[in-house]
Amino acid sequence: MTDPHTIDLPDGRPLVVHDSAPGAQERSVPVVVWHHGSPQSGALLAPVLAAAEARGLRVLSPARPGYGGSPRVPGRSVADAAADVAHALDALGVTRCVAVGASGGGPHALALAAVRPELVTGVVTLAGIAPYDGTETWFTGMADDGGLRAALDGPAARERYAETAEFEPSSFTDGDYAVLAGAWADLGDDAARAGREWPGGLVDDDLAFVRPWGVALADVSAPTLVVQGGADRVVPRHHGERLLAGPPAGELWLRPRDGHIGVLAALPVALDRLRAA
């Protein structure tokens, strides 16, 4: 694997961006910007690479602030992180891309399309979380909502929660565990590493999810495919329906039997569907 790019942002911070085709000769290859989940390092994942390479696509995977060598930014919003990615894409000479986000990456893929509509030609969210609306129903169906609830009480409360938080096994279905033991095994390994080495990234993600995102879903003009698992216990199916209420060119693809990880198997077909739109 090649070394990632380190992009200097306008405020002097570095942003780490992993690239499946970093050579200058690859600049004309169509680009997928992969917005990783929470927690993840931003490193390129084998199933994402396989889906992209089979379709002649280049993958760029930025590490959000707080993850994978990109320094934390206290108080960052979803839109702030999207603006960082937009700057990195400009620095890399990317003029058109498809934004794909998994789980906590979903909001960031949508935000990139909202802040830079001329750059993003399509969006896919896979088990993406919806904007917090201040209601109790937003949490309905989550097997473990402790981190998000702690985030409602502010940064100090969320940091305290992180000190003792442990993964809730019932968050995943049997199907999720099977997928993690197979094709998406490196996602599980990467998430465990990110949780150990960059716990602040997850804290800052949760804080950003329960605050205003800084963009409106109605500003996402690109064709948008919202893929949601009907059996998801991390980001329940109603979040997909909430996301669909925003983008004018949105489509919901509900996969009734999929859980939070199982739904990722839809990535290849989702890319085909979006490219055909």
Rank of each mutant, 00 (worst) to 15 (best):
A178H: 08
E168R: 06
V98F: 04
G104M: 13
A194R: 07
D153T: 08
A86W: 01
H108G: 03
S171D: 09
G128K: 06
G182K: 11
A111L: 03
G147F: 02
G101T: 10
G200T: 07
R196V: 14
V203T: 12
A162I: 02
G101K: 09
D133V: 09
V179M: 13
V98L: 10
W138D: 12
V203H: 08
T121Y: 00
D186F: 00
A114S: 07
D176S: 12
V220Y: 02
A102G: 05
F209L: 14
R160W: 08
A222I: 09
T121E: 15
G230S: 14
L126G: 01
S103T: 04
A114I: 05
G106C: 09
E159Y: 10
D174C: 02
G106P: 02
D232I: 11
G101M: 06
T164C: 01
A192C: 05
D186N: 06
L152E: 14
D206P: 00
I129S: 14
E197I: 07
R233P: 00
D174W: 02
D189M: 10
D145H: 05
Y161H: 12
T95M: 01
H108A: 03
M142C: 06
T224D: 12
A150D: 08
L126P: 10
V226C: 05
P212G: 07
D190P: 07
A130S: 15
R158Y: 00
P117K: 08
G154L: 13
P212C: 07
V203C: 08
P107A: 15
R193Y: 14
A162C: 01
L126R: 07
Y177Q: 14
S170P: 01
A162T: 03
A130G: 07
E163I: 00
C97R: 12
L225E: 12
P117R: 04
A91H: 04
D232G: 04
I129Q: 14
T121V: 06
D206S: 15
A127H: 02
E163F: 00
D219V: 13
G128H: 11
A208I: 05
G101N: 13
A165T: 08
L148E: 01
F172M: 04
A86G: 15
G104D: 03
A130C: 06
